[in-house]
Amino acid sequence: MSQSLQGKTAVVTGSSRGIGRAIAEGLAANGAAVAVNYVGNKKAADDVVAAIASKGGKAVAIQADISVVDDVHRLFDQTENQLGAIDIVVANVGIAVIKPLIEATEADFDLVFGTNARGTFFTLQEAARRVRDGGRIIAVSTGGTRMFFTQTALYLGSKGAVEQFVRVLSRELGPRGVTVNALSPGFTDTDLLPERDRALAAGMSPFGRIGAPREVADVAVFLASDEARWLTGENIQAGGGVA
Rank of each mutant, 00 (worst) to 15 (best):
T190E: 07
Q164I: 04
E103C: 15
T152E: 09
M147N: 15
T188A: 04
G94C: 01
N30K: 14
T145H: 01
I19L: 06
G26W: 04
S16I: 11
F149P: 01
Q151N: 14
A50T: 14
A51W: 08
F76N: 03
L223T: 08
E126A: 11
P100H: 01
A182P: 05
R214Q: 14
S16P: 13
G31I: 06
L27P: 08
I19D: 03
R130C: 10
A128Q: 00
G57Q: 07
L75C: 08
V34N: 04
L5P: 00
Q125M: 02
V216I: 11
V72Y: 03
L183I: 00
A22P: 09
G144P: 02
L124V: 04
A228M: 06
K42T: 12
A44S: 12
G18M: 08
V89N: 07
Y38F: 12
R21P: 13
D197C: 00
K8C: 12
G208Y: 02
G56I: 00
N81Y: 13
E172S: 01
G135C: 04
V166K: 01
L75W: 01
F113H: 00
G134W: 12
F113S: 13
D46R: 12
A22N: 10
V36A: 12
G31M: 00
Q237S: 14
P185I: 05
I210E: 08
T232N: 02
N235M: 12
V90E: 03
S54T: 13
L193I: 03
T142Y: 04
A59H: 04
I138E: 07
Y155M: 00
S170Q: 05
D226R: 07
F76I: 10
A220V: 08
I23M: 06
V162K: 09
L173R: 03
I102W: 15
L27T: 08
R167E: 09
A32Y: 15
R209H: 03
I19F: 06
T123E: 01
Q63V: 14
N92G: 02
D189T: 05
K55Q: 13
K99C: 06
N30W: 10
K43N: 12
P100V: 05
Q125P: 10
I86H: 11
M204G: 00
T13D: 04
A117S: 03
K159S: 10
V39D: 09
Q63Y: 10
G239W: 14
A107K: 15
R74N: 02
A107I: 07
F165M: 02
E234P: 09
G31Y: 00
E215Q: 10
E195N: 05
G119Y: 06
A217Y: 14
A202W: 01
D71C: 00
G7I: 06
R167L: 12
E227W: 13
A202G: 08
A91G: 07
K99N: 07
Q6W: 04
W230Q: 14
G233T: 09
G174N: 15
G241A: 14
